[in-house]
Simulated assay, not measured.
Amino acid sequence: MTSVEESPVTAASLLAAVGLRVTFPGRRGASAARAVDGVDLDIGSGEIVALVGESGCGKTSLARTLLGLVEPAAGRVTFGGAPLSYGSRALKAYRRRVQLVLQDPSGSLNPRHTVYEAVAEGLRIHGYGGDERAAVAEALSRAGLRPPERFFLRYPHELSGGQRQRVVIAGALVLEPELIVADEPVASLDASVRGEILALLLRLRDELGLSALVVTHDLGLAWNIADRVAVMYLGRIVETGPVEDVLTAPRHPYTRALLSVLPESAGPPVVLTGEPPDPSRIPAGCRFHARCQILASGEAETTGVADRCRTEDLPVLPGSGPAAVACHWAAAQVLGA
């Protein structure tokens, strides 16, 4: 694996990405697609971080790499300060400590397995030597399915969407992980149930000290659940920081556009032109410049950064710390203040 320049990982970091790059082969001889193109990201103990962006921005590839499902082309993943090893035994031990919660509980659960079997599966894979029934009951109870024994012999089709998602969460909790990666955890649920699942994740953080990376396209969800937010576009994090700082005073034009479509947004929605560029042909300069409303309006020209937006790349943002943004125009705004 390619070596990377050392990047500081804070002492409180539980899971961290340092200089992470993930590529996939191009079609018919095309250049490799750079799904993750230089990312630093830290998740602290007991912290919830929201990874936000449009479909195709690389957030799922980043999450899969943090889970050890994809080996990076460059950079490294560390857990508890130790680099992640990709041997089968090491990965099995790692995945007991870091669990995945998928967005579609119907697709995550085997329709032929009872709730008990679904939750106990992880225990059996990892050779759990304790009281299986008690562990399954406790996990279901923590996930809000009480009394747990009432759900043991039920099948997924007998449950509501919210209950199925709680079963998926229980299946992750039964192994007593330190961190969960939740990929769009409420996207498939009715609005009335979403708040309950988000409240459950917050309660698990408070009661168990559980950390979480929540992957979502919804900045409103990030506002309701996250301590920090990382906004991703075309393989890179373009804005990051405490959720209050980023979402109340967004500095990157892309973050502003994402926020503008929320129902509670004060101004008119920003309609971005076109689609995100092909990750095998990332443009020069700021990778957002072809769709940037600030550049299109002439404001970047007035500020004197238009040429830099089109030609000058931006540095990788730090994985933790105060709010940071990768934007020539935002940097010029600060200097001119």
Rank of each mutant, 00 (worst) to 15 (best):
Q293V: 14
V305W: 02
R251G: 14
C57Y: 05
A330C: 10
F152A: 11
G53Q: 04
D313V: 07
T273Y: 03
G80Y: 13
I294A: 12
A300C: 12
H113R: 11
V246E: 02
V316T: 11
D206E: 15
A172E: 01
P283D: 15
A134S: 13
C292H: 04
A257I: 08
T302M: 08
L213G: 00
R95W: 07
G285F: 09
V39Y: 02
V214N: 00
L200Q: 00
P250R: 01
V115W: 00
S260H: 11
R146T: 13
V70Q: 13
E176D: 15
P177G: 10
R64K: 10
E239A: 13
G80K: 10
V214D: 00
R28C: 14
V98K: 00
P105F: 07
R310T: 12
L201P: 00
L295D: 10
E158R: 06
S260N: 14
H157L: 09
V243C: 04
V36M: 08
G56P: 04
I294F: 04
L66M: 13
E239K: 12
G87Q: 04
G44C: 05
P269Q: 14
Y94A: 05
R291Y: 03
F24Y: 14
T311L: 07
A143Q: 03
L102A: 14
C292Y: 09
G321H: 03
N110E: 09
V119C: 11
I48C: 02
G304P: 12
P185K: 05
G107I: 15
